[in-house]
């Protein structure tokens, strides 16, 4: 028997690309604001800690669950654990946070939350994920950061 929390998760089809090239992409006079598609592109390929599948394949992250306000420098990412008792939810949230911290401009305030009603310890996990000190402490744990880097290796490929 497998010791995985969710041994056989549902796998979804993935999109080849999120965004088609636009004619203004190469026009330096046009400002491209950071939008949900750009954030989604950053996190869709993060690996699940348990399976060799991406968060997009598991439908943990969805384009519709990302809210960005470039002008006010805020990002809110909601994610949906594959099962309500998923003990990996905090780790997945941490991976998303680290990925965004390493990718977005420093001016952004990043909020990571579990989509409402999709996890039994939703409140507790949200609290952990958005507590600066706890996140900083977690990232000092060498073992944990190795796991996070492992999950992010596919995202930055």
């Amino acid at each position: 028997m497998s010791g995985k929390i969710n041994a056989a998760p549902q796998v979804y089809d993935v999109q080849q690309t999120v965004r088609r090239e636009s004619p203004t992409d190469h026009d330096d006079s046009v400002h491209d604001p950071i939008d949900a598609d750009e954030i989604y592109e950053l996190i869709r390929n993060i690996n699940d800690p348990e399976h060799p599948l991406t968060l997009e394949q598991l439908n943990v992250t969805q384009r519709a669950h990302i809210h960005v306000d470039d002008a006010n420098s805020t990002v809110l990412v909601e994610f949906t654990p594959t099962i309500p008792h998923c003990s990996m939810a905090t780790l997945i949230g941490l991976c998303i946070r680290v990925r965004l911290l390493r990718s977005l401009p420093e001016r952004f305030k990043i909020d990571i939350k579990i989509a409402e009603g999709t996890h039994q310890s939703e409140e507790e996990v949200n609290k952990q994920l958005n507590d600066k000190e706890r996140v900083a402490a977690a990232l000092e744990n060498i073992h944990l950061i190795e796991v996070v880097n492992q999950c992010l290796s596919t995202a930055s490929a």
Binding site: D25, D28, D32, I34, E38, E41, L42, E106, S156
Partner: peptide, 21 residues
């Protein structure tokens, strides 16, 4: 870190890869 806030998306995409590295 400064280039991550470039006003063009194409540049930012490259910066993400480079910064991670």
């Amino acid at each position: 870190a400064k280039a991550a806030d470039d006003h063009k998306r194409l540049v930012r995409q490259e910066v993400v890869k480079c910064r991670t590295k």
